[in-house]
């Protein structure tokens, strides 16, 4: 503890209030997911009289969560794979090459991070519609790859910059071709970065809304988020079932977050904090 007694008390009070307000909606959602609609209507703050686990089974059945969760997993893993495959070599080149052209490429990737989805969404949608790529899961994963790879490139670039050039030169002296150097020397050293990238990209793909809701319109191939969005509305009535579906969709993410907090937090705050 640093600081005098007053600032200490103030800090602890603030920390308490902040934690409470961050957790309140989550706790309410979990608690009410285990109540009947009548109980929720009576009071959202009351504890469930009995744990109504059947909300989860009926949500699973009625919302057809199974297939849509599978689609989310497909989109996420496909996106992770494509981002890792394309961003890693790109990050390596951007870390090593100097000069105006490469500075421009770096700047271009940086610019695409801040560009609004709205600036490319509409033509992209109508082009994809013409090409028959609407309602295609790989097509959505391809869009995610373009959206999330600049972040991955900049994160991996910092890892590549930390690798001593002498290692590559040694490999070159031994007669390694560039791709061999990359595969056997660079890639193993970027592994921790790749884990962080996989987690963050997977999270973003799992949670993404705008692209998914625009490009996936068939109930037979929507992601869990879109399924949940389509099923629920401002005037939903069966909140118990709906919250059970919400908890089911969020749970995998929370479990991974609890297990791999450091990668989550470091990965998501990277870029904002310059050391």
């Amino acid at each position: 503890m640093i600081g005098d007694r007053w600032s200490r008390t103030f800090s602890l009070a603030l920390i308490g209030v902040a934690s409470f307000s961050s957790l309140l909606p989550i706790v309410l959602a979990v608690m009410n997911a285990l109540k009947t609609t009548v109980e929720i209507g009576a009071s959202p703050l009351a504890l469930p009289s009995r744990l109504h686990w059947e909300n989860f089974s009926s949500a699973w059945r009625n919302a057809q969560l199974g297939p849509s969760l599978l689609h989310s997993a497909e989109v996420a893993s496909l996106t992770i794979f494509m981002v890792c495959v394309t961003a890693t070599p790109c990050a390596y080149v951007l870390a090593r090459q100097k000069g105006k052209f490469w500075r421009f490429i770096t700047f271009y990737f940086m610019a695409t991070i801040t560009v609004p989805v709205q600036l490319y969404l509409y033509p992209l949608y109508f082009i994809f519609a013409k090409l028959g790529l609407v309602n295609s899961i790989p097509a959505v994963a391809l869009i995610y790859t373009a959206m999330f790879s600049p972040f991955a490139i900049f994160l991996l670039r910092t890892y590549a910059l930390a690798i001593p050039v002498a290692l590559e030169e040694a490999a070159q002296v031994d007669g390694a071709r560039p791709w061999q150097t990359f595969w056997y020397v660079i890639l193993p050293m970027m592994r921790p970065g790749l884990l962080t990238v996989a987690i963050i990209v997977g999270l973003n793909a799992w949670n993404e809304f705008v692209i998914a809701v625009t490009f996936l319109q068939n109930d037979s191939n929507v992601t869990a988020i879109v399924r949940f969005y389509n099923l629920t509305g401002q005037y939903s009535t069966d909140w118990g079932e709906m919250l059970a579906a919400a908890v089911t969709i969020v749970l995998p993410i929370v479990v991974i977050f609890v297990l791999l907090q450091r990668q989550f937090i470091d990965g998501m705050t990277s870029g904002a904090v310059k050391s």
Binding site: V250, I253, M268
Partner: peptide, 8 residues
């Protein structure tokens, strides 16, 4: 935690 929960 709120940051990792889907916006929808």
């Amino acid at each position: 935690l709120p940051r990792i929960i889907a916006v929808a």
